[in-house]
Design a protein around this nucleic acid. Structure first.
Lengths: 347, 347
DNA sequence: AATTAGCACTCGATTTTGGTGAGTGCTAAT
DNA sequence: ATTAGCACTCACCAAAATCGAGTGCTAATT
């Protein structure tokens, strides 16, 4: 199934040309464009072969050829020389921001406006163990619970009280909570643990119940996976996706964070080397996206937590540019994390 | 410019019919549909008058009539009898949720799925005075600032330290901060105030600087206006909006929270009685939305803070249903707020 | 044996044509 | 004031005609 040099060259020419123009490309075009110095007739013969091998198809008789998924795949794997080389000079795409949430939103936005595709960014998957818990009395009837999770994710929960507590009580609770929960991973915090704590707290058992409820909610919240998107309207810029049918399917998928998350998780499962993964057409995990390609990259925080950046666009996508932009962005992002350990924070 | 009864009846018939079918409606249809017992010829004469008055137009010669913006306006103001009456029995559309953020997202979602239009919901405009500030030492080099704003909005900020502080220092800061800032409205917290505090803190001035920076950021964040949207893909369901041109304009507007916010603010400015406002076509504040109608309603929290719920759809929209749904939702929402003062919280 | 020129052929895209019918405006009769 | 009647308009649709890019095949060329 390996292609000889000439076929490769021709396939590459076809794909490149199609990526640029979006029109099926004919033998004459290739004959003139490539430096092989072959007539269109010869090219035609080769194209017939490439079609038989499954790399290209004719949308209809008497039209030029367009790449199949396999054709794109071959192009991406073997033919596309990455001009990447991390364009140092272009300098920073990202503005340094301390808040994780804002930073990742920015990444999604910058990527979308740089590539003109739809983008998504997942928050890093922290270890998620409890680092610190604090209750404080905001006023007579409101207790504020603050939970700091590894990676400095902070969650708050306001707890309404129907008994009066003084600061001393609160202090006691704080000690109790921290003794039990500090260092515990979120998944491990379960009913047993809570039962045990209640036992130790004696008289305060029912208030504690109330408090636990709040804390549990906050913990659930901390476990939610955040996902940021941008540029979903870019779908409409590409004629091959712009019909109502497809576009609304895509946009719905893109609005549904749950599903997006499932998708991105799935891609994550795949073993990975360079950090860049490309899913072309039917290779992608979701039916709705069969006319699209998905390209993802992994970024990493100094502590090892990883997150993903991805773009979704038409199969006829500027893969070179996308891969290059993605690489640059992850590098920049890694860098920001490295340099800015000093400030991290909430939500 | 007032219409006699007959013209009104005819106009109403035209609009109703058009809302249902989306097709231009002809004289024969009206003649048969209405109970006026008039021939199509008579209707035709009346329609000619209505056209002259600017309430209806023909998309082309030899087509039926469709309402103009003025026609819709007249319908909405005078002809549409609201079947509303708050459908008690239908019961709760909303699930009770404590977290404001989740609740409002839910409102947007429910509204979108109930009406099949795009929806947006703004967070209530709290008074925004500082209720409580607390610093705590998370670990040796991280200080956590928690700020609770009136309405129980909570913001966190992690502050990295390059000096060692002990709990006593932190306690001192807490007292200082609360003395100065408690009860202050966010807008009032300015440089002068901070200068003053620094003076009083003496030796700790430069650490305080660092801390203020964090707090200021958190306050800025608290001032951001949250806006939640849902169902933007519904635009594509309406043929009159589904061409790429318009749809992408709308979707972009809808993705841009800044702009949305500006829009909703603008509508707010308008004096208002029933809480429901309707903007038809060109009446709407944004060019992109000239083929749409915007309907907004105001909800209110017991403390008086107000927020808005809105839907955006094609001009040919089921105004009755929308108004009714909107009214029911705001009532339900007001109710939830009333009943659930006990728990409020973060973000 | 590989390449190429030449040619008939295919088929989507675009334009042209003509027919159909819903709906109108106007006039004359009721 | 209303209505029946009629000529007229024009979007819409389908069928037919035209066009041209691009093909596959064959026979000639290197």
């Amino acid at each position: 199934m390996e292609l000889d040099d000439r076929k490769s060259t021709i396939l590459k020419a076809i794909v490149s040309n199609y990526l640029e123009t979006g029109e099926p490309v004919g033998s004459r075009t290739i004959s003139k464009m490539s430096d092989l110095g072959l007539s269109s007739a010869t090219i035609r013969n080769e194209m017939a072969d490439l079609e038989e091998l499954g790399y290209i198809v004719q949308p209809h008789t008497s039209a030029g050829r367009i790449p199949t998924d396999a054709g794109y795949r071959f192009y991406v794997d073997r033919l596309m020389e990455e001009k990447v080389e991390v364009e140092e000079e272009r300098g920073a795409l990202l503005e340094r921001v301390d808040r994780m949430e804002v930073l990742l939103k920015q990444v999604a936005r910058v990527l979308a406006s740089n590539t003109n595709y739809a983008t998504l960014v997942t928050a890093p998957d922290y270890k998620k163990t409890v680092k610190f818990i604090q209750l404080s009395l905001v006023d007579a009837s409101n207790l504020l619970a603050v939970i700091v999770v590894d990676g400095n994710i902070i969650k708050n929960q306001m707890i309404h009280l129907n008994v009066l507590l003084d600061n001393e009580d609160v202090l006691k609770f704080n000690i109790l909570l921290n003794t039990f929960l500090q260092g515990a991973s979120l998944e491990d915090i379960n009913l047993e643990m809570i039962q045990e704590m209640k036992k130790q707290s004696g008289e305060y058992a029912d208030i504690l119940d109330h408090i636990f409820q709040g804390i549990t909610e906050a913990i659930h919240e901390a476990q939610e996976i955040d996902i940021y998107t941008s540029g979903s309207t870019n779908f409409l810029k590409y004629p091959e996706l712009a019909d109502v049918e497809k576009a609304s399917g895509l946009l719905e998928t893109f609005e549904d964070k749950e599903e997006l998350n499932a998708i991105i998780r799935e891609t994550e499962a795949e073993g990975d080397n360079s950090g860049i993964q490309i899913y072309i057409g039917d290779e992608s995990p979701v039916q709705n996206m069969k006319d699209c390609s998905l390209v993802t990259a992994t970024y990493q925080m100094p502590e090892g937590a990883k997150g993903r950046i991805g773009i979704i666009g038409p199969k006829r996508m500027d893969y070179k540019k996308v891969v290059s932009t993605l690489k640059n962005l992850t590098i920049e992002l890694d860098d920001i994390f490295k340099k800015s350990r000093e400030v991290t924070n909430d939500e």
